[in-house]
Nucleic acid binder design. Structure first.
Lengths: 218, 218
DNA sequence: CTCGGAATGGGGCGCTCACCTCATAGCCCG
DNA sequence: CGGGCTATGAGGTGAGCGCCCCATTCCGAG
């Protein structure tokens, strides 16, 4: 597939001011044009399917449908569409989930405007673009525990996500049990499984993870 | 003080793309001009003192020095400077801390671009501008517990902030005691005081608060 | 100079959390 | 049809957490 003369782009972010920033920076380039905007994952999928675009820039953490979920669905339904993930967080977990969901690139909001432009061009050339510290994360990973196999980045089950969300909203195990109409012991079982899968130790770490994932707002 | 023909503005946010967005939206107005940018609170104070500006737009949650701290310092050292706070979070706590720090307005990143422009103009006219749902928060507050007196929005002491930061980074009381070289009992005493002051119940809520305040990254 | 806040620390109490083991029922996949 | 995964739930244990009580020291504001 040849690179189009002008790359048509959709930007999805829940903050209008961020969309304006992306639009300004990208439209200033002669070879890039923002032709659609979305403020959550579901809208991003809808507009990306309807519009004639080459690339979607998706914020990882969005209300309702997250950017990761949107990426998975778009990758499945429109495989030729390039996906570039945008995130506030320098998170290993997000990085791998994004790449697994079919994204070609991952940049941070704390990156310079020019880096984002560069990431878009790289992505369109069929290359991957990761922000510089992500490379460091990958290297550290190789050193610490060998080749990162997929198992280590296993995703949580729907039920576990449900429990995680409530934990991060400061529900106690008893309250979660009442909410989900199961026994306390089962809630604790789920919590333990989540902690094991993510390699974490307590509810504070789970809370931060849930916020990074966009499951809840801080 | 008359309103200047062209309002000279500093924008402070840790994300370049947000600064670009603000610059685009504000520069598009004939009466507004962004003349300085900063990426954390300390830099904002430095540039705001040095530059000839009428208004500073400060992100509430920034690394190192937060927007609230920067607002306090600027309000003290340059009282004629107008301050407009920008935040991701519809947080009552932040709203009041911002107003106490001397800010004239408070808008959300999820507000439309035009609302932010309107907030800047309101602020320069000497009026206050709060985003719509903040009004709701204020009204609900009056109904629920009468006039909100200052006590309820008391700020934490430096030591308490230090302890809060470590709690939100998933340190146990024992680890915090070792880190700060004090006894576990004192750490727990501080924790309890923080919980009381903020009206919260556990470390999960403290973690979310610390993230909203920008004390730590998720 | 007294009063209050900040910071320090002690004792105790009850509950939750974090970490184990084990078991069962339902499911899909090869 | 057996083997894995998910969801369910029981039992126990020790440590940390959340919430009371109390006291002392220091410092600044009134």
């Amino acid at each position: 597939m040849p690179i189009p003369l002008v790359t048509r782009i959709l930007v999805a972010d829940d903050h209008p001011i961020v969309r304006s920033g992306l639009k300004k920076v990208l439209d200033a380039q002669p070879d890039l044009e923002v032709v659609a905007e979305a403020e959550d994952g579901a809208e991003a999928v809808k507009k990306a399917m309807a519009a004639d675009i080459h690339l979607a820039i998706l914020d990882v953490s969005m209300p309702k449908t997250t950017g990761i979920q949107a990426a998975e669905e778009l990758h499945r339904r429109k495989p030729e569409l390039r996906l570039l993930m945008l995130s506030m967080y320098d998170s290993e977990q997000f990085l791998f989930e994004s790449l697994k969901a079919g994204a070609s690139g991952y940049v941070l909001k704390s990156d310079a405007d020019q880096d984002i432009v560069e990431a878009v061009r790289c992505t369109m050339r069929g290359q991957s673009f990761l922000y510089p510290s992500a490379i460091g994360t990958l290297v550290r990973d190789f050193v610490e525990r060998g080749r990162p196999d997929e198992e280590q980045f296993d995703i949580l089950t729907p039920r576990e996500l449900q429990v995680l969300k409530l934990i991060a909203e400061a529900y106690t195990s008893k309250e979660i049990a009442e909410e989900l109409v199961i026994s306390i012991k089962t809630v604790e079982r789920h919590r333990q499984n989540i902690l094991d899968k993510l390699g974490m130790n307590d509810r504070v770490e789970l809370t931060r993870y849930a916020i990074r994932r966009g499951l809840i707002q801080p």
